[in-house]
Amino acid sequence: MNYKTLDPSKTYLITGAAGFIGFYLSKKLLEQGCQVIGIDNVNDYYDVNLKNTRLKQLEPYEKFTFIKGDLADKETVMKTFEENKPNVVVNLAAQAGVRYSIENPDVYIQSNIIGFYNILEACRHHPVDHLVYASSSSVYGTNKKVPFEESDFVDHPVSLYASTKKSNELMAHTYSHLYKIPATGLRFFTVYGPMGRPDMAYFGFADKYFAGEPIKIFNNGDFENDLYRDFTYIDDIIEGIERLLSNPPAGEPQHKVFNIGNNNPEKLMTFIGALEKALTNSLGRDVEFNKVYEPIKPGDVPATYASTDQLQQAVGFKPETSIQDGLQKFTDWYVDYYKLK
């Protein structure tokens, strides 16, 4: 496997540094002595306390600089590039969530389209060695062919969130072609773990359990045709990103898109069973969710399943964490963080 390892002499700009993936990536780079500039608008889409807890863990690192700012503000973005001259940019800031994009479309256009455009413009005027940006498995829409491969047709997104992510890939391709910006897009597949996003299903299920409420499962109670998800543990995701940072795509244009997932989809009901077991272990008592079955929601897709062959070929990425181990780490953190024991 011939790929370049991380270069600690470079400056890394991480957008969405108070977010789930942004926090873990910043921490990993700082642990290896890299200079990290983090930018985040710390919005209240989910619990701001959790975002502040993440940022507090990054503060002690001397080589960490935090900028509170919004990517939709072009002046802030340009100033950040001018003053810090990043060599590598990782754009993880985005308005996330499929269902929320139906309620509040404006923020998706601001954050995911205008914000990303401002990043591309900044990379154009202040050239970088590599731009890595977050796309999403949602671009595959209701693709019936599994596993999803990067070469699949992705022109039928079923949510505005997915449309914005597909737009990011097109915009990055164009800027790469016109201005020779080496860029890599990452299609993430259901990332989970400690300090994760409270709007994700696994986190919400834990919240509901402790609130004494039933969990809603959007599969009509159809266990034969249950929803499948490619759940990917946070440490595996960070390992994959880290390996890519010093390995921009070659060729013309210098733009590539990779799936970054577990390549091992689980039935949603299997995942829920594993979460019950993990909570049982964390609490030392039997845990069983009260389950309510409902029809699949608009914008949700029946299955996500990543082919990760291309990423493995490029940088030797292979997820290692089993669903049981990953969920155990999550529930141990959750019970401790919310002082439930």
Results as ranks from 00 to 15, higher is better:
residue 1 M to F: 10
residue 2 N to K: 02
residue 27 K to D: 10
residue 28 K to G: 14
residue 35 Q to K: 09
residue 46 Y to L: 13
residue 50 L to M: 05
residue 51 K to M: 13
residue 53 T to H: 09
residue 64 F to K: 04
residue 65 T to P: 00
residue 67 I to V: 04
residue 76 T to D: 02
residue 86 P to E: 00
residue 87 N to G: 14
residue 91 N to F: 06
residue 93 A to I: 11
residue 94 A to G: 08
residue 99 R to D: 15
residue 99 R to F: 10
residue 99 R to Q: 14
residue 101 S to N: 14
residue 104 N to V: 09
residue 107 V to W: 00
residue 115 G to T: 07
residue 115 G to N: 05
residue 115 G to S: 08
residue 125 H to Q: 11
residue 127 P to C: 12
residue 129 D to Y: 04
residue 133 Y to E: 11
residue 134 A to H: 07
residue 136 S to F: 01
residue 136 S to T: 02
residue 138 S to E: 08
residue 140 Y to P: 08
residue 142 T to C: 08
residue 142 T to S: 11
residue 145 K to R: 06
residue 149 E to A: 12
residue 154 V to P: 00
residue 156 H to P: 03
residue 156 H to E: 15
residue 157 P to T: 05
residue 157 P to K: 06
residue 159 S to C: 03
residue 167 S to Y: 10
residue 176 S to E: 03
residue 176 S to T: 07
residue 181 I to L: 09
residue 183 A to I: 04
residue 186 L to V: 13
residue 196 G to V: 05
residue 197 R to P: 05
residue 206 A to R: 03
residue 206 A to V: 12
residue 217 I to L: 14
residue 219 N to M: 07
residue 226 D to K: 06
residue 229 R to T: 04
residue 234 I to K: 01
residue 240 G to C: 05
residue 245 L to Y: 00
residue 248 P to Y: 00
residue 254 Q to R: 13
residue 257 V to S: 02
residue 262 N to P: 04
residue 268 L to G: 09
residue 270 T to Q: 07
residue 276 E to F: 07
residue 277 K to C: 01
residue 279 L to G: 10
residue 281 N to E: 15
residue 284 G to D: 09
residue 287 V to P: 09
residue 289 F to Q: 01
residue 292 V to K: 00
residue 293 Y to C: 07
residue 296 I to E: 04
residue 297 K to Y: 07
residue 298 P to G: 10
residue 301 V to K: 04
residue 311 L to C: 03
residue 314 A to Y: 07
residue 320 E to W: 01
residue 321 T to V: 15
residue 338 Y to E: 09
residue 339 K to H: 14
